[in-house]
Nucleic acid binder design. Sequence first.
DNA 1: AACAACGTGTGAAAGTAATCACGAGGGTCA
DNA 2: TGACCCTCGTGATTACTTTCACACGTTGTT
Lengths: 212, 212
Amino acid sequence: MTTTTIPEVVVLRLPLYVRVLAALEGRGQGVVSSQELGTLLHATPAQIRKDLSYFGRFGKQGRGYQVSNLLKELRHIMGIDREWSVVLVGVGQLGSAILTYGGFAPQGFNILAAFDADPSKHGAAIGNVLVQDIAQIKSEAQRLGVHIGIVAVPVSHCQRVVDLLVDCGIRAILNYAPYQPTTPPGVWVRDIDPVVALQSMTYHLKTAEDQW
Amino acid sequence: MTTTTIPEVVVLRLPLYVRVLAALEGRGQGVVSSQELGTLLHATPAQIRKDLSYFGRFGKQGRGYQVSNLLKELRHIMGIDREWSVVLVGVGQLGSAILTYGGFAPQGFNILAAFDADPSKHGAAIGNVLVQDIAQIKSEAQRLGVHIGIVAVPVSHCQRVVDLLVDCGIRAILNYAPYQPTTPPGVWVRDIDPVVALQSMTYHLKTAEDQW
DNA sequence: AACAACGTGTGAAAGTAATCACGAGGGTCA
DNA sequence: TGACCCTCGTGATTACTTTCACACGTTGTT
């Protein structure tokens, strides 16, 4: 068995591949070339081919890739051909919005429970999810077999909550707090911070202005 | 004048530097070393020093960096020592949540107007912002001197809305739709897609499982 | 059956980014 | 003053990513 470690940049691109392949399948396209995928993904055809080659040989010379087959393969490789159990911590404005957001479930990410430290929120149901006492999280996470945690708490609580999730056996965390928590090896964190995204663009806006 | 082009990866890290420096200033710390910054940012001290060296010589040998000074410098370099005018397109569930989110204004990003194609939404005020007809966007954007656009529309409308924003003279776009729009050179886009973030983690979860 | 057009998979080359390692300066204290 | 410790800034090195370019298989055509 030839186990090459996949570069992380490639892993980060895989979901985008799946996204456009799903769109192509939805519109009934049967075959796609690396050239066309490259256009749709704003990447070079060579990069598409090299990325895919890390996982196998899915294409056919002279033809391209069979959309439905490649999509199936990639979904399996990424582990998104199954359901994942998710818990959310922090039911403030942001947390509530996440609970009512309809984009996770269709992709197999099921938010099964929500937790907050504020007793006044306990017992409420937001978007079909019951808000529970944060003290219950460990037993609930184990009972539900949770894989993924979403953190939507203030910066001041972020590290503590992340530690707690890790203690619950969770090894993948989607973090909405504007803070990079420290985690032990083997735990994956993705940060979502729109302000950071905006700030990295203002650098370019300013630089473009200064140009003249 | 020595104008080296700054690597984009460095630009993407600058906001994180500002974030931790602001935290250090808030807690009253006067001086910080690249070593300590590295710990807080999960980066090596060498990387911190090299990144900062693209913009100038802010440190003092034997001491480190003066927190307030470095913060001031970086804020200026990134263009976040001023206010930026923002418009939002798409006042659905997500768009409404963005309008009521309190995290943008304190960082100098002021959402001045919101637009939607649905007439039933026009005239509503959400989080102090008036929802207007999308047909008004060009005149309003010019009147308000808008710099940045936030896109919170369905995938099917994303490209059209982005084209419209570009036509309004906007050159920085924060895109919440799960689709990578095409833009002319000189226009900057940052995509925010929590599902993509989750999917890149399930790859690792699955791989860790398969290990044994 | 031969040929042309197409497009994959992949080593090699080129281009970027991260890290190393060290000279030089600053601070502290006896 | 001088010895010692600290930490920056940076050229050199190493590691990682992307792109190039071509052999080879597939499809369609005459």
